[in-house]
Design a protein around this nucleic acid. Structure first.
Length: 862
DNA sequence: ACCGCCGGGTGCC
DNA sequence: ACCGCCGGGTGCC
């Protein structure tokens, strides 16, 4: 029963299939257009203006839409403005040459009207023609045959996109420039203002949090023009017009202000409290405390107030209007907060911690019995829900969350919303709200495209339209046209607030954390265990050496991992691994790894997963999302490997053994393993490491009996081994591992955080189950029972203790068995660390294979 | 006049 | 559209 729950077949798991779309890029469209470049442009006329209401201004971008079912001409091409209003058609004798290019997918066409205004019947239009190196020849040939003049790109008749060349920027360089987009935002950018939160916020706030509050409140109550809009006086008229600086769209209707944006502070700067303060402070009918400048300088005082502006880029509308007016809210009162399931409880905890009891009513929209009446939901101050709930309910009008008119929406960990075609993105974008905030510590993960979903969520016109986003930001960026980066920078500056942990204000860091010291504690195995260890290592070396000689290490990877796993287990406690005699029987008798009977293979994979095989996906080099494991024991993102199997032959990219989609097995969500009841009890015997750890804990208790400790291990069985000795030594402890329900986890956390003198002082955690976001600041001692070769995983674990809210100095002790695989894992960590610093270096599949083999050699001293 | 010329109606696809 | 084009009205000077 245990193993069935663990390894599930992807092909039959509808739950996983649903999740597939929710991560990673899905847009084939993008890829299709990625290699397209501007061939040149054709001058045409837009005709029939008198029949349509769509208006355009000079230099405005227009969209060209094929209209194959037009009753008068099957080559018809509509010309449409930003609002989607039709302006006219492309004159038919040009359309008949352009339409086939589009219909045959040979080219992409886009238009700019140089003189859009004041035309009654027709107007000129430059049709930009994009194609790729394959279709370039045909397109040119066809146009030439048709007698259509294709003007080369660089004759540049004006028009913002004139400089599109065919010198694409390498992804790496692009990535680098993207990273810079967020640099230095907030450091010298305009005035710094803070604001006191409502009195219902009971915790003290850092200055930078009050600054975020002031920024958000001001944004929410703003009447300013959204980014990329200017006011313009029209000649010969007293009327004001509003002009979009990207598309040159001109309108009399004032575009509504952007009441929201992107809070992109680093992790650990306390975004949650800042947001709770926003919810508690900027409420309907509230009286706001004034927004005040921080340390006004002489220059500030002398400068005319009108000139003091947060937003300085000329591309962006300036902040205008008053600041200290009360919130203009008389509609809905409810804030919807959407977050990943793993941080749901964090919101609840922080609400309890930072707000006056009863001052904000909260409803957890989660679980099968959730209230589905929108009227009831709208009576809470806060409704908390998850992306998965949102995605599963869909974007339809009839779903409860879509029926409510929200006061504001907060998307927590908003970087998770990046695939524009994913269900959850659609659902998020469809939500009705007056104010919208996206919150993330990692604003750009891959490409500028990730930001497109954000534009859709914020409803920032015209960038929330994919075709305009592509032509004004994404394509210039990939083509090395500076306009893309300039726009992106202006955009980010206008909508985002980002502070980093390392940022300094007046020579001090925003958040000073207590010190963290890491030390090693070396452990000698008992003579008995040493003998066992050496024997297993000797045997393992033989087996692996044989694989090395025949060049089949990666084909027998499951076996290799199994051996490494056994060694790591013995270092902790020999009771963690089966009796020695059973250990290599399978491997040694095995002739062909392809014909391993399934139960044995499942058993092996199960063990590998339990042993915490958190490899990076060998395809995308990141931590795998929706990790799957192959029968040959290689781990990938589900999406990555499925794509690879489609594109390439049906082979495992690591070891080239046959592989099809139906062979993939999903790794269990966390460590959701129901422990075998027989192994629930730890072995009666102790081990050197267990003894060493208990000794350290007792020593620490002598120094300070109230100081709490957390203990991380990869092996939940190791935690079992510790429970008995801990009790014997008189420690009260709680435990968190992957097999526990979220309710039980919460209970363990609550009891650990209690200040009651009888409360537990020790928290046993399985490294994998302790997901990001977990707050363990009640403890100030950390024990890492076993090392793992991805140092980031260990650092993340330590940061759960060493984070905002920690008041004591933190000590971390890493237990390492001397002369064992463990000190080699430390070496490997060092190597990984160095490798990580020269990241983004494209590694070929061959290099990766080699690296993995080298890793094995290092670990086994071969 | 099976023309030229005039002037009104008309106008995308 | 202050165009072109169509087609009806018209017709010495």
């Amino acid at each position: 029963m245990a193993s069935r729950a663990v390894v599930q077949n992807v092909a039959t798991s509808s739950q996983l299939v649903d999740l597939v779309d929710s991560d990673d890029e899905g847009g084939t469209q993008v890829d299709e257009n990625a290699d397209k470049f501007l061939l040149g442009f054709v001058e045409v006329n837009v005709v029939g203006l008198q029949y349509y209401s769509g208006r355009v201004s000079d230099q405005e971008m227009v969209r060209l839409i094929r209209e194959p079912h037009n009753p008068y001409d099957r080559n018809a091409i509509q010309v449409v403005n930003i609002l989607g209003d039709q302006i006219g058609h492309i004159e038919r004798y040009k359309a008949c040459h352009l339409a086939p290019l589009v219909d045959d997918s040979l080219a992409l066409i886009e238009g700019i009207v140089p003189h859009g205004s004041k035309n009654k019947f027709k107007m000129p239009c430059l049709v930009h023609i994009f194609s790729n190196s394959v279709t370039e020849g045909i397109v040119k040939q066809r146009l030439r045959n048709a007698g259509v003049v294709l003007q080369p790109p660089h004759s540049d008749v004006g028009g913002p996109e004139g400089s599109f060349g065919r010198n694409p920027v390498k992804p790496k360089e692009q990535r680098q420039s993207l990273d810079n987009v967020f640099e230095g935002l907030g450091e010298g950018a305009g005035e710094r203002c803070t604001m006191e939160p409502a009195s219902t916020i009971t915790s003290a706030m850092f200055p930078h949090q009050k600054e975020a509050l002031a920024w958000m409140v001001r944004t929410e109550n703003s009447s300013s023009l959204p980014p990329f809009w200017n006011m313009q006086k029209v000649r010969g008229s007293k009327d004001l017009m509003y002009k979009n600086t990207i598309t040159n769209f001109l309108t009399e209707k004032r575009p509504s202000p952007l009441l929201g944006g992107l809070l992109a502070d680093d992790m650990g700067l306390g975004k949650t409290l800042a947001l709770l303060a926003l919810v508690a402070t900027n409420r309907p009918g509230a009286t706001l405390s004034p927004i005040v400048k921080v340390n006004p300088t002489v220059a500030d005082v002398l400068e005319r107030p009108k000139k003091k502006r947060r937003v300085t880029s000329s591309d962006v509308a300036s902040v205008e209007g008053g600041e200290d007016h009360p919130p203009r809210m008389n509609g809905p009162r409810t804030t919807l907060i959407v977050c990943p399931l793993s941080v749901l409880s964090n919101w609840v905890t922080q609400l309890e911690e930072h707000t006056e009891p009863g001052s904000l009513s909260v409803y957890l929209y989660h679980g099968p019995d959730r209230i589905r009446d929108p009227k009831l939901l709208a009576q809470f101050d806060i409704v908390l829900t998850t992306y998965n709930i949102l995605a599963s309910e869909g974007a339809g009008e009839y779903t409860p969350l879509q029926k409510v008119n929200w006061l504001r929406i907060i998307l927590d960990e908003a970087h998770l919303v990046k695939n524009p075609s994913a269900q959850q993105t659609k659902a998020v974008v469809a939500l009705k709200a007056e104010r919208r905030w996206a919150v993330t510590g990692t604003p750009i993960q891959n490409t500028a495209r990730d930001l497109f979903s954000l534009m859709q969520f914020l409803r920032l016109e015209p960038l929330n339209d994919s075709s305009y986003w592509r032509r004004t930001v994404e394509r210039p960026l990939t083509n090395g046209d500076p306009s893309g980066l300039v726009r992106l920078q202006a955009l980010i500056k206008a909508i985002a607030l980002r502070r980093t942990k390392d940022m300094q204000v007046d020579g001090r860091r925003l958040v000073e954390l207590p010190r963290k010291t890491i030390s090693m504690h070396y452990v000698e195995l008992t003579p008995e265990d040493r003998e066992l260890y050496d024997k297993v290592e000797e045997n393992g070396k033989d087996v692996i050496e044989r694989f090395m000689k025949s060049g089949t290490v990666l084909q027998n990877y499951a076996t290799v991992l199994q051996i490494i796993l056994r060694l790591r287990q013995i270092c902790n406690h020999p009771g963690l691994c089966p009796a020695y005699t059973e250990m290599f029987a399978a491997e040694l008798n095995q002739k062909d790894s392809k014909n391993v009977p399934p139960p044995e293979l499942l058993e092996k994979l199960l063990n590998i997963i339990k042993g915490g095989a958190d490899f990076d996906c060998a395809i995308c080099l990141n931590q795998p999302t929706n990790a799957v494991i192959t029968p040959c024991a290689h781990v990938y993102c589900q999406r990555c490997i499925e794509k690879s199997l489609l594109r390439n032959k049906e082979q495992c990219p690591m070891c080239r053994s046959d592989l099809s989609t139906s062979d993939l097995m999903a790794a269990p969500k966390e460590e959701g393993v129901q422990e075998d009841p027989s192994s629930e009890q730890g072995p009666s015997k102790s081990s050197a490491k267990v003894d060493a750890l208990i000794k350290l804990l007792v020593e620490a208790r002598v120094k300070d009996p109230t100081e709490k400790s957390v203990i991380f291990s990869q092996f939940s069985q190791m935690l079992n081994c510790l429970e008995g000795p801990l009790s014997d030594a008189g420690f009260r402890f709680v435990r968190l591992d992957g097999s526990m329900t979220s309710k039980k986890r919460q209970a363990a956390l609550t009891s650990f955080h209690s200040k009651d003198p009888e409360s537990p002082t020790i928290f046993l955690l399985s490294l994998k189950a302790a997901g990001v976001g977990l707050n363990l600041v009640s403890a100030s001692r950390v024990y890492m029972v076993d090392p793992w070769w991805n140092p980031a995983v260990e650092e993340q674990a330590m940061d759960r203790v060493h984070r905002l809210g920690q008041t004591r100095d933190v000590t971390v002790v890493r237990l390492i068995v001397t002369d064992s695989i463990e000190d080699r894992i430390l070496e490997l960590q060092e190597r990984k660390r160095q490798l990580a610093t020269c990241a983004f270096e494209k590694r070929s599949a061959e290099q990766q294979r080699l690296m993995r083999i080298q890793d094995v050699q290092l670990l086994m001293r071969l």
